[in-house]
Nucleic acid binder design. Structure first.
Length: 159
DNA sequence: GCCAACGTTGGC
DNA sequence: GCCAACGTTGGC
């Protein structure tokens, strides 16, 4: 695999907090993916996400959990400054400017799927049975996705 | 609102 | 380093 090869991810967001609509409205600007407070998810962002990687934007904790569209990484990991903000709900006294504990990337709207691909549908699709999303106990808010799974989701949305 | 399945914290 | 207690995620 070449260094520049694109990787694929799934990121979860609660639509009541930040929906794909919200991202789409900000089409021309970038959005900081802040507030990630899980080490494994942080490691994926910090160590493996590169500019140009594509992200399946998934709505979780809502009436119809589903992949809504695609976003793109436009800035690689840098310290999540909300961890230093005592007024932020993401404040973490253990993260300092000298030694930041949490990181974030910047993302940007890319495309909306022709229609949402629901969790129910993903579970019912044999080709997607190995996706982390549908693995038991898998709650990571940032997950690697294979190109094959990524392409399958996109093609499902056109049917 | 329930609860299973995690992850994190902190006493020992 | 163990593990109980606690907090969080997220589908249902």
């Amino acid at each position: 695999m070449s260094i520049s090869e694109k990787r694929y991810w799934l990121i979860k967001s609660e639509p009541e907090t930040f929906s794909f609509d919200d991202l789409e409205k900000k089409k021309t600007s970038v959005e900081s993916w802040d507030g990630i407070r899980n080490y494994q998810a942080r490691n994926y962002m910090r160590d493996d996400m590169r500019v140009g990687d594509l992200l399946l934007f998934y709505h979780s904790s809502c009436s119809v959990p589903a992949v809504m569209g695609i976003a793109e990484v436009v800035r690689e990991a840098y310290p999540d400054y909300t961890a230093w903000d005592t007024k932020s709900s993401y404040y973490d006294p253990k993260s300092s400017k000298e030694s930041p504990r949490w990181f974030m990337v910047d993302i940007k709207y890319k495309t909306r799927l022709k229609r949402p691909v629901t969790l129910t549908e993903i579970k019912a699709t044999k080709a997607l049975s190995e996706m982390l999303l549908v693995k038991k106990g898998q709650r990571l808010s940032i997950q690697p996705v294979s190109k094959k799974h990524f392409d399958t989701i996109v093609s499902l949305s056109t049917k």
